[in-house]
Amino acid sequence: MQLVEKHMAVLSNDAIRLQEYGVGVFERIATKSALKKAIKKKMIFVNDKVATTATFIKEGDKIEYRFDQNDDTRKKFRLKLPIIYEDDYLAIINKPAGIVVSGNNFKTVANALCQNLNPSSIHDAAKPQPAHRLDFATTGLLLIGKTSSVIKELNRLFEFKEVQKSYYAVTIGAMEPKGEVNLQVDDKEACSIFEVLETIPSIRFNYLNLVKLSPKTGRRHQLRKHMLAIGNPILGDATYFKQGLMLKGKGLYLHAQSLQFIHPKTYQEMYVDTTLPVKFNKLFRSIS
């Protein structure tokens, strides 16, 4: 028996190649390589005609993915994800520690989204996709797109730095009350703002600080690298640490605490935050 997934194209710009538009449109085709294979096998149709790698997509085109029922043998990754906010266009989840957001692995946040989120009723509904990344060990808020047009718009918001993010971290050692770190990461300009909210004495680490971090750029491991660079590595960091000051077994004390942006469809100003993990509360009275 042949099954069909359908999608109606929504474009705000000129026509683009199917290979660019089609990634993430269908639940079973999450990567460019998977889309290319489906096209090669003549499983993708545009306006009832077999698509090719040269096919362009324009506003209103009907795209179909036709596959045999026996081919749908995928294992499903079961992972409960706390949903902080959800509507038909986007969602915000609270990412747990110890899992990657996306990639070639089976166990990713991206592969668990469909089982946790409600299907979108919008005509360009797509497989939910994370709009940004959090490190494997980092917890906290992750923004998800649920339609093709919103996925593209969220990517644009991040590209033009129109999403404000704040993190909470526990850092090691004496710190200035607040400051700005401007140090290149991977040979690219990078800027992080920090503010110490509370400091407690520690026998092993001398001082531990509850710090609010606001990245102004989005480089890989930026906050972790910047805190180590100023002599105050993040507690529990197994990669960026000072010799003899690495805490094992408790995980990384870095949490994506808030997101602020303009909703790409309702144009409402969104501000979403979440409570800190219990391990933060055990250290600092101000958040207990």
Score class of each variant (00 low, 15 high):
residue 48 D to A: 05
residue 158 F to G: 03
residue 173 G to S: 04
residue 10 V to Y: 13
residue 82 P to K: 07
residue 63 I to R: 00
residue 129 Q to V: 10
residue 115 Q to M: 12
residue 12 S to C: 06
residue 76 K to W: 02
residue 255 H to G: 06
residue 54 A to V: 00
residue 192 S to N: 03
residue 214 S to H: 07
residue 138 T to K: 11
residue 244 G to V: 15
residue 251 G to S: 13
residue 57 I to E: 05
residue 10 V to E: 12
residue 160 F to H: 15
residue 36 K to E: 04
residue 90 L to N: 02
residue 234 I to K: 11
residue 124 D to P: 10
residue 90 L to K: 05
residue 116 N to P: 04
residue 75 K to A: 07
residue 265 K to C: 08
residue 123 H to D: 09
residue 19 Q to A: 11
residue 12 S to H: 13
residue 112 A to P: 04
residue 164 Q to A: 12
residue 93 I to M: 04
residue 20 E to W: 02
residue 146 K to L: 05
residue 282 K to S: 08
residue 189 E to N: 12
residue 189 E to I: 03
residue 178 K to N: 12
residue 30 A to N: 06
residue 278 V to E: 13
residue 115 Q to H: 11
residue 150 V to D: 03
residue 207 Y to L: 08
residue 259 L to T: 11
residue 262 I to A: 04
residue 70 N to D: 09
residue 259 L to S: 09
residue 226 H to F: 12
residue 151 I to Y: 00
residue 149 S to I: 13
residue 98 G to T: 02
residue 213 L to N: 08
residue 2 Q to A: 11
residue 241 F to H: 15
residue 26 F to Y: 01
residue 193 I to P: 00
residue 280 F to P: 01
residue 70 N to P: 00
residue 107 K to Q: 14
residue 273 D to V: 01
residue 69 Q to S: 12
residue 86 E to D: 06
residue 5 E to A: 14
residue 237 D to L: 08
residue 40 K to N: 08
residue 219 R to P: 08
residue 2 Q to D: 14
residue 52 T to R: 02
residue 112 A to W: 01
residue 2 Q to P: 14
residue 118 N to G: 00
residue 3 L to M: 13
